[in-house]
């Protein structure tokens, strides 16, 4: 008996009507789409993007070639050579990050005793030829110089939670 009732009920197409009404309701809802290049989703100050080497306000580079970042890097993406500079201080002669190896874990930034190597919130970058994936010291310093203001700001925002 219930079988026959169910069969007759199915002929009224009520279930399909319910489903159609549901999709119709969503048709008029506000859309979730973020129109990317014009609109962007908010980014956390802890966002880990492209790397940068920072300088002190007097122009001296922060890095002291302690090689902690090189040691902690789980992907072995950092290569550092160091030497004694004319003034007798220890500085890097080579500081390279292979961005293809890098997994953006942020350990280098955590390990740095002088806040030299940082990960900025830049995530829109690309390489145009082979080998360009290895960031040299000059490039990293240039990124740091260009975005120092932004980096300082995000570090400031995050500082109270650390």
């Amino acid at each position: 008996m219930t079988k026959i009732v169910r069969y007759l009920k199915s002929l009224t197409l009520n279930e399909i009507r319910k489903g159609l009404m549901l999709t119709q309701k969503y048709f008029f809802k506000r859309k979730f789409t973020v129109r990317y290049p014009e609109e962007k989703t908010p980014k956390s100050p802890r966002f880990r993007g492209l790397h940068a080497l920072r300088r002190y306000p007097n122009g001296e580079e922060r890095c002291i070639a302690c090689k902690l970042c090189e040691a902690v890097c789980p992907a072995a993406a950092i290569t550092i050579d160091s030497d004694v500079r004319e003034d007798g201080s220890r500085r890097t002669t080579k500081y390279e990050i292979d961005l293809f190896k890098c997994i953006y874990c942020g350990f280098c930034e955590e390990s740095c005793p002088v806040d030299s190597i940082v990960e900025t919130d830049i995530h829109e970058y690309h390489f145009e030829s082979m080998g360009k994936n290895v960031m040299t010291k000059e490039q990293l310093l240039a990124v740091g110089d260009m975005y120092e203001e932004q980096i300082a700001k995000t570090k400031q925002e995050d500082a109270k939670y650390r």
Binding site: T23, Q24, Y26, F27, R30, K31, F32, T33
Partner: peptide, 13 residues
């Protein structure tokens, strides 16, 4: 467009 709207998306724009 219709299917995108029902998926709460924008569709081609």
């Amino acid at each position: 467009k219709v299917i995108a709207f029902m998926h709460v998306r924008m569709g081609p724009n």
